[in-house]
Computed example of a mutant assay.
Amino acid sequence: MSAKRKSARLALAFLAFVVGLPALADVEVHVVSVGQGRQTDDFYALPEINLLVDRPGSDVALVLIDGGQAHWRIEGAEGTHITEVVRDGPDDAPARVTLSGIPMQIEEGPDLPLVFGPVGADFRAMLDTVGDRFGIDRIASFTALHKAGRAALRVDRVDRATPGLSRDYLADHLADPRDLPPELRGWIETPGETGGPDVRFDETGVTLSDPSGLRFLPITGDVPAILLPAASVYDPSSHTVFAVSYGGPGYLYAVDALTGAWRVIAELNDYDASALLFDPATGQVILTGAFSRPGDIRAFTQDGAMTSTFVPTIGFPGLTDLFDYGNEHGPPLVPHLLRDGWLLVSASGPSGPAYPDAGAFRLYAVALRSGEVKLLAYEND
Rank of each mutant, 00 (worst) to 15 (best):
residue 236 P to W: 02
residue 285 V to F: 06
residue 278 F to R: 10
residue 243 A to W: 11
residue 245 S to M: 08
residue 281 A to S: 12
residue 253 Y to H: 07
residue 230 A to E: 09
residue 267 E to L: 04
residue 228 L to H: 08
residue 250 G to I: 11
residue 279 D to C: 07
residue 257 A to F: 11
residue 276 L to G: 04
residue 285 V to C: 08
residue 281 A to K: 08
residue 252 L to W: 09
residue 293 R to F: 07
residue 245 S to W: 09
residue 281 A to L: 08
residue 227 L to R: 09
residue 292 S to M: 13
residue 263 R to E: 06
residue 231 A to P: 01
residue 283 G to F: 06
residue 261 A to T: 13
residue 293 R to M: 05
residue 255 V to H: 14
residue 250 G to K: 13
residue 251 Y to C: 09
residue 231 A to R: 08
residue 234 Y to S: 08
residue 282 T to A: 09
residue 259 T to D: 02
residue 243 A to V: 12
residue 265 I to F: 07
residue 241 V to N: 10
residue 242 F to P: 07
residue 248 G to K: 14
residue 271 Y to R: 01
residue 256 D to E: 09
residue 254 A to F: 03
residue 286 I to M: 10
residue 252 L to I: 09
residue 229 P to I: 00
residue 235 D to G: 00
residue 257 A to M: 10
residue 255 V to E: 12
residue 279 D to G: 03
residue 227 L to M: 05
residue 284 Q to W: 04
residue 268 L to G: 10
residue 289 G to Q: 01
residue 271 Y to E: 01
residue 281 A to H: 05
residue 233 V to W: 09
residue 267 E to R: 11
residue 255 V to G: 14
residue 279 D to P: 03
residue 273 A to E: 04
residue 251 Y to Q: 13
residue 277 L to D: 10
residue 257 A to L: 11
residue 278 F to V: 03
residue 293 R to D: 12
residue 291 F to Y: 15
residue 289 G to F: 00
residue 264 V to A: 07
residue 259 T to E: 01
residue 262 W to N: 03
residue 245 S to Y: 08
residue 237 S to F: 08
residue 227 L to D: 10
residue 246 Y to H: 15
residue 275 A to M: 13
residue 237 S to V: 07
residue 292 S to Y: 12
residue 236 P to Y: 01
residue 275 A to P: 03
residue 266 A to H: 05
residue 289 G to L: 00
residue 284 Q to V: 04
residue 283 G to S: 01
residue 265 I to L: 12
residue 283 G to M: 04
residue 235 D to P: 00
residue 250 G to Y: 11
residue 243 A to E: 13
residue 286 I to L: 13
residue 247 G to Y: 08
residue 278 F to G: 05
residue 245 S to P: 14
residue 232 S to K: 06
residue 262 W to T: 02
residue 256 D to K: 07
residue 229 P to C: 00
residue 248 G to E: 15
residue 264 V to S: 08
residue 259 T to R: 03
residue 257 A to I: 10
residue 255 V to F: 14
residue 271 Y to G: 00
residue 261 A to W: 06
residue 254 A to Q: 04
residue 225 A to H: 11
residue 270 D to I: 00
residue 240 T to V: 14
residue 288 T to C: 05
residue 257 A to N: 09
residue 262 W to I: 01
